[in-house]
């Protein structure tokens, strides 16, 4: 292990990243008839005002179901997507305006691990070449030192050093995910955004990769944003969680506190819906009724109100703000307590 990869530091409360009011829409294609008929451009509301804080050295779990915008959020944070509005700050500095050299420097600090272990590696590059490329493009090491550092990176993710000469298709899903992690670590980031990094893997292999994330975070002092739909997993590895629903964060707080006493009815439903491995905890009742609404035409007011068992008239019109409401952590639900900020009809 080379000393320069190690960046151990105490977990501080200082935010390393802040996300403020992030909005991202994807316009849908319009037919000629739509254009001639003067119909408005329809768009998928992927993110409608997401605000988050990520603390240095922590794992923030972002959970939600399909269409909640969690993957779009991940891609906006590494600038694979350009948000329409809002701000992302990294160590206090604006990220969205960065261009050229500054943008590459930002990406060195904030890396991503992808979901699909088969799609995230270039099939024509050997593992060694893929890692060496990341090292040489950023001139992290040069010349003869490259091969040595590739070996160290493979050690770090517990792959044998001879893996460097092999190609992605020669590895299993779990091993490929290790390669993806090693590639992200090559540029010595301080934040890793992992977008469903284990959901394509079998349970027993998932545990191997989860342990690797835990270990690397400990050894390298990484900050981890872990995006997943798996509540069991997120509870296990996150210090704090943010629950997303239809392009919004509806509740965010310390993981165990939120799991023990969720304040938002959606969080409660989500936790109740997870099948328990303990056969004695069976319930015949549905955790929540109804379908996920379409992100093309999100409901007005609180996005969860059409499925909410306790919705009141104001939920249909007034968008609840994500504020503490007299409790220990912020929640976007009118019924959790009075808002400590103005709310708007939408």
């Amino acid at each position: 292990m080379s000393g320069t990869i190690l960046k151990s530091g105490p977990v501080a409360d200082a935010p390393i990243m802040t996300v403020d009011g992030l909005v991202k829409t994807f316009p849908l294609g319009r037919s000629l008839a739509d254009v001639l008929g003067g119909r408005p451009v329809r768009a998928v509301q992927a993110l409608s005002g997401v605000s988050l804080t990520v603390r240095k050295g922590e794992t923030l779990g972002v959970v939600g179901e399909s269409g909640c915008g969690k993957s779009t959020l991940a891609r906006c944070l590494v600038r694979l997507h350009e948000p329409d509005a809002g701000a992302v700050r990294f160590e206090g500095a604006d990220v969205l305006g960065l261009q050229g050299y500054a943008r590459r420097a930002y990406n060195r600090s904030v890396q991503m691990v992808f979901q699909d272990p088969y799609g995230s590696l270039n099939p024509r590059l050997s593992v060694g070449d893929a890692l060496a490329e990341a090292l040489t493009v950023h001139r992290i090491v040069e010349g003869g030192a490259v091969r040595e550092r590739v070996g160290e990176l493979l050690d770090l993710v517990h792959l044998p050093r001879d893996a460097a000469d092999r190609y992605p298709h020669e590895f299993s899903g779990g091993q490929r995910q290790r390669v993806g992690i090693a590639r992200a670590l090559a540029v010595e980031p301080s934040v890793i955004i992992a977008d469903e990094p284990v959901s394509a893997l079998d349970v027993s292999v998932q545990a191997q990769v989860v342990n690797l994330f835990l270990e690397l975070q400990e050894r390298l002092g990484l900050t981890l944003i872990f995006i997943t739909h798996d509540l069991r997993l997120v509870r296990h590895i996150s210090h704090r969680i943010a629950v997303m629903y239809l392009g919004k964060v509806v509740e965010t707080g310390d993981t165990e506190a939120v799991f023990t006493a969720p304040r938002h009815p959606y969080t409660r439903a989500l936790i109740a819906a997870v099948p328990q491995v303990d056969p004695h905890q069976r319930s015949a009742r549905e955790a929540v009724r109804g379908e996920l609404p379409s992100p093309i035409a999100p409901p007005p007011g609180c996005p969860f109100h059409p499925r909410c068992p306790i919705a009141e008239p104001q939920c249909r019109t007034v968008v609840p703000a994500l504020v503490p409401r007299g409790g220990p952590w912020p929640v976007a639900c009118h019924l959790a307590g009075p808002a400590d900020a103005p709310e708007f009809i939408a």
């Binding site: 292999v205 998932q206 191997q208 989860v210 296990h236 491995v277």
Partner: peptide, 21 residues
């Protein structure tokens, strides 16, 4: 297999994976 799954209450303890393939 049962032991390899995350259990509530053991937050951030290493999981117990099954080695190999």
């Amino acid at each position: 297999l049962l032991r390899s799954m995350p259990h509530g209450g053991a937050a951030r303890a290493p999981l117990r994976p099954i080695p190999g393939q």
